[in-house]
Design a protein around this nucleic acid. Sequence first.
DNA 1: TAAAACTGCGAACGGCGTTTGCAGTTAGAG
DNA 2: CTCTAACTGCAAACGCCGTTCGCAGTTTTA
Lengths: 190, 190
Amino acid sequence: MAAATAMADADGLGAVSMRAVATALGTGAGSLYRYLSSRDDLLDLMADRAAGELRPYPEAGDDWLGAMLRIARRQLDLYRRHPWLVDLLARQSAPGPQSLAWFDHCLGVLRPVPAPAAAKFEAIAMMTGVVSLFARSEQSGPPAGFDGIDMTAFPHLVEAATAAPAPAPRRDLFEATVRSVLRGLLTDAA
Amino acid sequence: MAAATAMADADGLGAVSMRAVATALGTGAGSLYRYLSSRDDLLDLMADRAAGELRPYPEAGDDWLGAMLRIARRQLDLYRRHPWLVDLLARQSAPGPQSLAWFDHCLGVLRPVPAPAAAKFEAIAMMTGVVSLFARSEQSGPPAGFDGIDMTAFPHLVEAATAAPAPAPRRDLFEATVRSVLRGLLTDAA
DNA sequence: TAAAACTGCGAACGGCGTTTGCAGTTAGAG
DNA sequence: CTCTAACTGCAAACGCCGTTCGCAGTTTTA
């Protein structure tokens, strides 16, 4: 798991092949199957191990929203450290103990919130999703140039591109989004 | 593209192999490279073709938020029709003409909004991301059973699971989330 | 009519995840 | 102490994958 994680951090999930991991461990590809049932199994273990890095969990003072925001920031940091984690979020596999512990802590933070359990599940999932969106947009950099495209067909795009570069008031986009999503999903006041 | 799209709709992106597409077309795998530079190229073309299904674009009346919500609903419908599109969102490749046209239309809808162009870009991207999160959560079904796990370590999870099944007030979660994200990112009132 | 360019295509290459059978080692029973 | 059974590490092999290549057959150009 350590070897595979190091390789994924450096060169992405695609670099984590059974042969590469085995080579890093000084053995053959087939040997890994004494300890793992499949490559997906390895990926699951890596994901749960990384989820352990979310500790220590931010504790809720009297305001659950502030605690959830700190939790979201820790998630974002984790996704920055391990960009491949974002790709693993899509997969549907049984969550490991570390992931469950984190989820349990979130439920604990949300305990004073008067909302049904299902709503809290959805809110936590949506928060994780929003964090992953920000992580991904940070990774992918600027949105690719429009080279060799007839721009006359897209007037609004041209207008926006030629506008003033940026007045840059820019309050914290991440915090604002997470806050609005959580408040929108967990409180009656939309 | 039509053959590949049909296969992806039926069995997911993994079923779209060059050999499978070629077989459906009654030829060999290598022959496809006379028309495509790579498999990624095929995927890009499929994505842009699917983006064409977003037409006709909902027109903005006097309220841009309502128009954006209708646009988001059309996106969600598209992702339901073509679940594999969600997987393609992660890739960073030059957007095709259909995608650009859609994006341009969104900018047109947002024209009366007094926000910098960069904020509008971010808002549209975040809306697309949120839609993809909902599409994905619909696809993946219930979040996998907790079989053979020591639940005593996760008290809040147990409490939430054993709580009343669901009071089910449940206003429209999708619309509420999209609305809160757009208003949060494009208006001064957070 | 000859030459040049282009098209379709099957075979082949390297890499992948995974399976399998074989040596070498360890553990247990008589 | 010995024989046997179970387990471990491992390299070779299997069937996929995306992609490249060279060869025929056809069409365009001179």
